[in-house]
């Protein structure tokens, strides 16, 4: 049995929070991460989801050696992140969505050059790897632009390239697609899939975006109030909670409420039945099936699909665990 890339055992992290209650000021301990245990093996692609403040960033910080656990153990790439921080830094690449690791006022190519020197990559290897990443992430035209002038999408691609420059075993992405447009998101996902296929890099991704999870992850960890609420696959997750997707159809003519489609629940109609919202169980039927049923009953002008939002899924999980 090979060493897991991430091994977390009863990991706990509490913060002292000062609160002003009616009875006066007091402080209590808030558990941002509470007795979490899981392992990630080499080559896996794990999605780490949960509502804001659920403890995702705190866990990541503990995995990287930025924050010390209150109790429990954590091992990343077989190392204790606190003691082996500098050694660990050679094996992991991290992208924090909001905060940059590049040099703000320098052209992008200089950031890559400096990082290559920091990781002590042999010149030829650095050259090769940089060219490879720049090509795959389509950053050629932006290499001479100062980082602060890049658009959000360009910057995210640059951050990911920077994190992969030294070919780490583990890539951790903290909310990488936040604020990106649909096209950029899709391109980024395609890149990550290709990268993993080629190098077997382990991927740990925190996100609010179910699309990211669907496309990129074979496994999901759901965290709620610091506790691990679910550890398994996405279809399993959808099935577990009976999460519902919503089909929104715009019809050619005002139509009666379509309440009679099997396996669905009619939610609402607008404009006299011109637009209708129909919920269906993701595990039970596909969007295509429901669409076909609707088409039998009315002529469709346009449609869209709403995914179950994270908070809803998480809430359902939590409720299902009660």
């Amino acid at each position: 049995m090979s060493t897991p890339i991430v091994q977390v055992d009863r990991l706990t992290r509490t913060f002292r929070v000062r609160r002003k209650a009616a009875a006066g000021t007091g402080s209590r301990d808030l558990a941002a991460v509470d007795q979490m245990s899981f392992r990630i093996d080499a080559g896996e692609s794990v999605g780490y989801i949960g509502a804001n403040g659920a403890g995702k960033s705190t866990t990541i910080k503990m995995l990287c050696g930025i924050l010390v656990p209150t109790s429990g153990t954590v091992r990343t790439c077989g190392l204790d992140p606190m003691r082996g921080r500098r050694e660990l830094a050679r094996h992991i690449g991290v992208v924090f969505g909001q905060r940059t690791q590049l040099w703000w006022d320098l052209p992008l190519r200089e950031s890559f050059a400096i990082l290559a020197a920091i990781h002590r990559l042999p010149a030829a290897q650095a050259e090769r790897r940089t060219t490879e990443l720049v090509d795959q992430l389509e950053m050629g035209p932006t290499l001479d632009t100062p980082v602060r002038q890049l658009s959000l999408g360009q910057r995210m691609r640059a951050e990911i390239a920077a994190a992969l420059l030294h070919s780490p075993q583990l890539l951790i992405l903290d909310e990488p697609t936040i604020g990106l447009d649909v096209v950029s998101k899709a391109r980024l996902r395609e890149f990550l899939i290709a990268e993993r296929a080629e190098r077997g890099t382990t991927l740990l991704l925190t996100t609010h975006d179910m699309g990211d999870v669907e496309r990129l992850c074979d496994r999901i960890l759901v965290v709620d109030h610091g506790r691990l609420a679910y550890d398994g696959t996405l279809p399993g997750l959808a099935a577990t909670v009976g999460a519902q997707r919503v089909l929104v159809v715009d019809l050619i003519r005002p139509t009666r409420d379509l309440v009679d489609i099997p396996g669905t629940r009619h939610l609402a109609s607008e404009a006299d039945g011109l637009r209708q919202r129909i919920a269906f169980d993701a595990a039970a039927s596909t969007a295509a099936q429901v669409l076909a049923s609707v088409a039998e009953r009315a002529e469709i002008h346009d449609l869209s699909i709403e995914e179950p939002d994270i908070e809803d899924v998480v809430r359902r999980i939590y409720l299902s665990m009660q």
Binding site: C64, I66, R86, A89, I92, V94, R99, T100, I118, H119
Partner: peptide, 12 residues
């Protein structure tokens, strides 16, 4: 700004 963490992620 939370940008001190970037330094923690480098092997120095």
């Amino acid at each position: 700004a939370g940008t001190l963490d970037a330094f923690y992620l480098r092997p120095q």
